[in-house]
Protein backbone atom coordinates (compact mmCIF):
# COMPACT_ATOMS: atom_id res chain seq x y z
CA UNK A 1 0.00 0.00 0.00
CA UNK A 2 1.26 3.44 -0.94
CA UNK A 3 2.00 5.83 1.94
CA UNK A 4 -0.55 8.57 2.45
CA UNK A 5 0.51 12.14 1.74
CA UNK A 6 -0.51 14.43 4.56
CA UNK A 7 -0.61 18.21 4.85
CA UNK A 8 -0.41 19.40 8.46
CA UNK A 9 -1.81 22.89 9.06
CA UNK A 10 -1.28 24.41 12.50
CA UNK A 11 -0.16 27.83 13.68
CA UNK A 12 1.39 26.40 16.87
CA UNK A 13 5.04 25.56 16.01
CA UNK A 14 5.31 22.95 18.79
CA UNK A 15 2.27 20.96 17.70
CA UNK A 16 3.24 21.37 14.06
CA UNK A 17 6.71 19.91 14.64
CA UNK A 18 5.38 17.13 16.86
CA UNK A 19 2.86 16.08 14.25
CA UNK A 20 5.43 16.27 11.49
CA UNK A 21 7.91 14.08 13.37
CA UNK A 22 5.44 11.49 14.62
CA UNK A 23 3.76 11.12 11.24
CA UNK A 24 7.05 10.93 9.34
CA UNK A 25 8.19 8.23 11.76
CA UNK A 26 5.13 6.19 10.70
CA UNK A 27 6.28 6.58 7.07
CA UNK A 28 3.63 9.05 6.06
CA UNK A 29 4.75 11.67 3.56
CA UNK A 30 4.30 14.92 5.48
CA UNK A 31 4.22 18.57 4.47
CA UNK A 32 3.48 21.44 6.84
CA UNK A 33 1.82 24.83 6.64
CA UNK A 34 1.88 27.51 9.32
CA UNK A 35 -1.45 29.03 8.45
CA UNK A 36 -4.39 28.93 6.07
CA UNK A 37 -2.65 30.98 3.39
CA UNK A 38 0.33 28.64 3.29
CA UNK A 39 -2.03 25.65 3.25
CA UNK A 40 -3.91 27.05 0.27
CA UNK A 41 -0.63 27.66 -1.59
CA UNK A 42 0.54 24.09 -0.85
CA UNK A 43 -2.80 22.65 -1.97
CA UNK A 44 -2.74 24.60 -5.21
CA UNK A 45 0.66 23.13 -5.91
CA UNK A 46 -0.20 19.46 -5.34
CA UNK A 47 -2.98 17.25 -4.04
CA UNK A 48 -2.77 15.48 -0.67
CA UNK A 49 -4.53 12.35 0.54
CA UNK A 50 -5.20 13.90 3.92
CA UNK A 51 -5.28 17.44 5.27
CA UNK A 52 -4.87 17.56 9.04
CA UNK A 53 -5.78 21.05 10.13
CA UNK A 54 -6.28 23.01 13.30
CA UNK A 55 -9.82 24.36 13.48
CA UNK A 56 -8.99 27.70 15.09
CA UNK A 57 -6.19 29.64 13.47
CA UNK A 58 -5.46 33.35 13.42
CA UNK A 59 -5.85 35.27 10.16
CA UNK A 60 -8.55 35.17 7.52
CA UNK A 61 -8.34 31.44 6.77
CA UNK A 62 -9.32 29.09 9.60
CA UNK A 63 -9.81 25.32 9.61
CA UNK A 64 -13.29 25.54 8.07
CA UNK A 65 -11.94 27.61 5.18
CA UNK A 66 -9.04 25.15 4.70
CA UNK A 67 -11.69 22.40 4.55
CA UNK A 68 -13.66 24.30 1.92
CA UNK A 69 -10.60 25.10 -0.18
CA UNK A 70 -9.46 21.46 0.00
CA UNK A 71 -12.84 19.98 -0.92
CA UNK A 72 -13.20 22.47 -3.72
CA UNK A 73 -9.84 21.55 -5.22
CA UNK A 74 -9.83 17.82 -4.45
CA UNK A 75 -13.19 16.28 -3.46
CA UNK A 76 -11.43 12.98 -2.67
CA UNK A 77 -9.00 14.45 -0.15
CA UNK A 78 -9.93 13.61 3.44
CA UNK A 79 -9.88 16.45 5.93
CA UNK A 80 -9.36 15.76 9.64
CA UNK A 81 -9.78 18.66 12.05
CA UNK A 82 -7.91 19.19 15.28
CA UNK A 83 -10.00 20.98 17.83
CA UNK A 84 -10.08 22.09 21.42
CA UNK A 85 -12.84 20.53 23.49
CA UNK A 86 -14.56 23.91 23.69
CA UNK A 87 -15.11 24.07 19.94
CA UNK A 88 -16.55 20.60 19.32
CA UNK A 89 -19.75 22.18 18.04
CA UNK A 90 -17.88 23.83 15.19
CA UNK A 91 -16.14 20.52 14.48
CA UNK A 92 -19.51 18.83 14.12
CA UNK A 93 -20.59 21.67 11.82
CA UNK A 94 -17.44 20.98 9.78
CA UNK A 95 -18.32 17.29 9.50
CA UNK A 96 -21.56 18.38 7.85
CA UNK A 97 -19.47 20.34 5.36
CA UNK A 98 -17.54 17.25 4.37
CA UNK A 99 -14.80 16.81 6.98
CA UNK A 100 -13.97 13.14 7.54
CA UNK A 101 -13.32 13.31 11.23
CA UNK A 102 -12.10 15.47 14.10
CA UNK A 103 -9.59 14.92 16.89
CA UNK A 104 -9.62 16.60 20.25
CA UNK A 105 -6.58 18.30 21.75
CA UNK A 106 -4.32 17.09 23.24
CA UNK A 107 -3.79 14.78 20.29
CA UNK A 108 -3.87 11.10 21.06
CA UNK A 109 -1.48 9.72 18.45
CA UNK A 110 -2.76 6.14 18.63
CA UNK A 111 -6.18 7.48 17.76
CA UNK A 112 -4.76 9.58 14.94
CA UNK A 113 -2.88 6.62 13.43
CA UNK A 114 -6.03 4.50 13.65
CA UNK A 115 -8.01 7.10 11.71
CA UNK A 116 -5.26 7.40 9.11
CA UNK A 117 -5.21 3.61 8.71
CA UNK A 118 -8.92 3.70 8.03
CA UNK A 119 -8.50 6.48 5.48
CA UNK A 120 -5.77 4.46 3.74
CA UNK A 121 -8.04 1.40 3.64
CA UNK A 122 -10.93 3.35 2.18
CA UNK A 123 -8.58 4.84 -0.40
CA UNK A 124 -7.44 1.37 -1.46
CA UNK A 125 -11.00 0.12 -1.71
CA UNK A 126 -12.08 3.16 -3.73
CA UNK A 127 -9.18 2.70 -6.10
CA UNK A 128 -9.96 -0.95 -6.70
CA UNK A 129 -13.63 -0.07 -7.20
CA UNK A 130 -12.56 2.45 -9.83
CA UNK A 131 -10.34 -0.15 -11.50
CA UNK A 132 -13.19 -2.64 -11.56
CA UNK A 133 -15.53 -0.03 -12.97
CA UNK A 134 -13.08 0.82 -15.72
CA UNK A 135 -12.60 -2.84 -16.56
CA UNK A 136 -16.37 -3.25 -16.65
CA UNK A 137 -16.78 -0.30 -18.99
CA UNK A 138 -14.19 -1.70 -21.38
CA UNK A 139 -15.78 -5.15 -21.32
CA UNK A 140 -19.24 -3.70 -21.72
CA UNK A 141 -18.36 -1.53 -24.69
CA UNK A 142 -16.59 -4.42 -26.42
CA UNK A 143 -19.54 -6.72 -25.74
CA UNK A 144 -22.07 -4.18 -26.91
CA UNK A 145 -20.24 -3.67 -30.19
CA UNK A 146 -20.20 -7.41 -30.82
CA UNK A 147 -23.83 -7.87 -29.83
CA UNK A 148 -25.05 -4.91 -31.85
CA UNK A 149 -23.20 -6.08 -34.95
CA UNK A 150 -24.71 -9.54 -34.53
CA UNK A 151 -28.13 -8.01 -33.99
CA UNK A 152 -27.91 -6.13 -37.31
CA UNK A 153 -26.53 -9.17 -39.14
CA UNK A 154 -29.29 -11.43 -37.88
CA UNK A 155 -31.92 -8.82 -38.77
CA UNK A 156 -30.55 -8.63 -42.34
CA UNK A 157 -30.56 -12.43 -42.67
CA UNK A 158 -34.11 -12.49 -41.38
CA UNK A 159 -35.13 -9.96 -44.01
CA UNK A 160 -33.55 -12.14 -46.67
CA UNK A 161 -35.33 -15.23 -45.40
CA UNK A 162 -38.64 -13.33 -45.36
CA UNK A 163 -38.07 -12.12 -48.94
CA UNK A 164 -37.25 -15.64 -50.13
CA UNK A 165 -40.29 -17.01 -48.33
CA UNK A 166 -42.52 -14.40 -49.96
CA UNK A 167 -41.09 -15.27 -53.35
CA UNK A 168 -41.44 -19.02 -52.95
CA UNK A 169 -45.08 -18.69 -51.91
CA UNK A 170 -45.95 -16.17 -54.62
CA UNK A 171 -48.78 -17.87 -56.55
CA UNK A 172 -48.62 -15.39 -59.41
CA UNK A 173 -45.29 -16.81 -60.60
CA UNK A 174 -44.58 -20.24 -62.07
CA UNK A 175 -42.72 -22.53 -59.67
CA UNK A 176 -39.41 -22.72 -61.54
CA UNK A 177 -39.42 -18.93 -61.89
CA UNK A 178 -39.89 -18.57 -58.10
CA UNK A 179 -36.98 -20.90 -57.43
CA UNK A 180 -34.75 -19.15 -59.94
CA UNK A 181 -35.47 -15.74 -58.45
CA UNK A 182 -35.00 -17.02 -54.90
CA UNK A 183 -31.59 -18.40 -55.85
CA UNK A 184 -30.64 -15.08 -57.44
CA UNK A 185 -31.64 -13.14 -54.31
CA UNK A 186 -29.73 -15.54 -52.10
CA UNK A 187 -26.63 -15.32 -54.28
CA UNK A 188 -26.77 -11.54 -54.39
CA UNK A 189 -27.20 -11.17 -50.68
CA UNK A 190 -25.22 -14.08 -49.33
CA UNK A 191 -21.74 -13.46 -48.06
Amino acid sequence: MENLTILVVDDDPVIRRLLEQRLAKQSYVVSVAENGQQAEAALREQPFDVVLTDLMMPGGIGGIEVLEITKNLYPDTQVVLITAHSSIDSAVEAMKKGATDYLEKPINFDELFLRLDKIANVKTILRSAKDIEQAMTVTESAASETIQNLEMTVAKKQQLIDAVEDLLTDDTLPEDERIARAITILCENGN
Binding site: E140, S144, I147, Q148, L150, E151, V154, A155
Partner: peptide
Protein backbone atom coordinates in the same frame (compact mmCIF):
# COMPACT_ATOMS: atom_id res chain seq x y z
CA UNK B 1 -26.21 -1.76 -25.09
CA UNK B 2 -25.37 -5.40 -24.44
CA UNK B 3 -28.93 -6.65 -24.78
CA UNK B 4 -30.49 -8.24 -27.86
CA UNK B 5 -34.04 -8.82 -29.05
CA UNK B 6 -33.06 -11.60 -31.46
CA UNK B 7 -35.33 -14.53 -30.71
CA UNK B 8 -37.19 -12.41 -28.15
CA UNK B 9 -39.61 -10.22 -30.06
CA UNK B 10 -40.02 -10.39 -33.86
CA UNK B 11 -42.28 -7.33 -33.73
CA UNK B 12 -39.21 -5.13 -33.32
CA UNK B 13 -36.64 -4.39 -36.01
CA UNK B 14 -33.18 -3.14 -35.03
CA UNK B 15 -31.97 0.02 -36.75
CA UNK B 16 -28.61 1.66 -36.51
CA UNK B 17 -27.92 5.33 -35.97
CA UNK B 18 -24.23 6.20 -35.87
CA UNK B 19 -22.87 3.69 -33.35
CA UNK B 20 -26.10 2.90 -31.54
Amino acid sequence: STESLTGVCPRFVPKRHLRT
